[in-house]
Design a protein around this nucleic acid. Structure first.
Lengths: 205, 205
DNA sequence: AATTGATTTAACCAAACAGTTAAATTTAAT
DNA sequence: ATTAAATTTAACTGTTTGGTTAAATCAATT
């Protein structure tokens, strides 16, 4: 009565994640999640009383790694140079492992913006830190006079966008080829780093 | 039997657009669309036989202005300088007027990538053109040696991302204030133009 | 005035679906 | 062997929903 408990719960979470991401909360069917997990609907409700409760769990489980990634980088690096590099590298790596998370988060966030509020408060990310670093380097004439908020949004946008717009990019620009998309992402880490540095540094090779 | 026909159809389309964008295709209810349009369900089905057909119509109606915007700019401007400026200006303007279109398109595109294929073919956008222009200027040592595809994706990403990630940006970075978000978008056009030019031009002030 | 299409009313159907229940069966721990 | 939890089976409930139907009313055209 202990051994398989965790395993089944994990199986359910994994299955639910897959289905929720693929179909969204409204498109997802409890039966489909049960099938995907290799169990039946009764057991599914036995573990998670309702669809909503199950979704909440999957959502927070998906949200946490994103926040973790950000905090990790912020604590590790201090100067703008390594901060940009570290941020982009960690972010793209995380996205490559969880390519559907951005769309998932964005979609459910747009549908139910309030749900995120708790998540935000419970996992406080210190975004002000990177903005202060940018501010200082702007004052020190090391960086061009861009507003820190925009620079921050830019970096995230450059990393995340290809993953939420993948069908468009792959279909329009990359001959509808999965291989080309993988290559595209592969070379993108270095590209973003160069692109951002070229943009923000006053003296750049 | 002619006068109000168009008007009612338009009312339905507008209502459907609103509901579909807000709730997604699965979350949308035909009754809600009818209510929103100020008619009843029977009439709704009288105009559009099924939810799917109605959705198809709304989707193509939403997709066309995006493509129109792009083509317009591409035909008008030739050199990279005015192309970047024109593209960003037109794109942000269009997005300000239709802030929910990106999320709508991206969401339904991820859920049903095939649906877009017809749209793509029927509204051929010539993206190669901007890529060729970038290529030439890279060869002419006017631009840094970035791959054109990435530069193109970057520009679109910088414009579009704030609109799909609005709840996050507004909540995390802008004190949850609508006013601040509007200001943010206001100043963003100029920011993106400067940011991109700084990044790509070898000699930039 | 007669016709025709637009719109409403209201009732209805069948399918899908979240969630429940209760009894039976299996599995593992003691 | 007993016990208790995990899991299955299977039938069921209540509701929501997309879609239909048919008759009635309204509005404009002829």
């Amino acid at each position: 009565m202990v051994k398989k408990t965790v395993s089944t719960e994990e199986k359910i979470i994994a299955a639910a994640k897959k289905v929720f991401i693929l179909k969204g909360i409204d498109g997802a069917r409890m039966q489909e999640i049960a099938d995907e997990a290799g169990i039946n609907k009764s057991l599914l409700h036995y573990y998670f009383r309702s669809k909503d409760k199950l979704f909440d769990r999957v959502f927070s489980d998906s949200f946490i790694p994103v926040v973790k990634t950000i905090n990790l980088v912020f604590e590790k690096f201090q100067d703008i140079d390594s901060l940009v590099e570290g941020f982009v590298r960690h972010y793209i790596t995380m996205l490559r492992e969880n390519p559907y998370i951005p769309h998932f988060i964005i979609h459910e966030l747009n549908r139910n913006p309030d749900r995120i509020v708790e998540q935000i408060q419970s996992s406080s990310v210190n975004l002000n830190r990177i903005m202060e670093i940018i501010s200082k380097d702007v004052e020190g004439h090391k960086l061009r006079p861009f507003k820190p908020v925009h620079v921050l949004v830019n970096i995230v946008a450059l990393c995340v966008f290809p993953f939420v717009a993948r069908p468009i990019i792959q279909g329009f620009l990359l001959n509808d080829s999965e291989t080309e998309f993988r290559e595209f992402i592969e070379e993108r880490t270095q590209h973003i780093i160069s692109f951002v540095k070229s943009a923000i540094f006053i003296n750049h090779p």
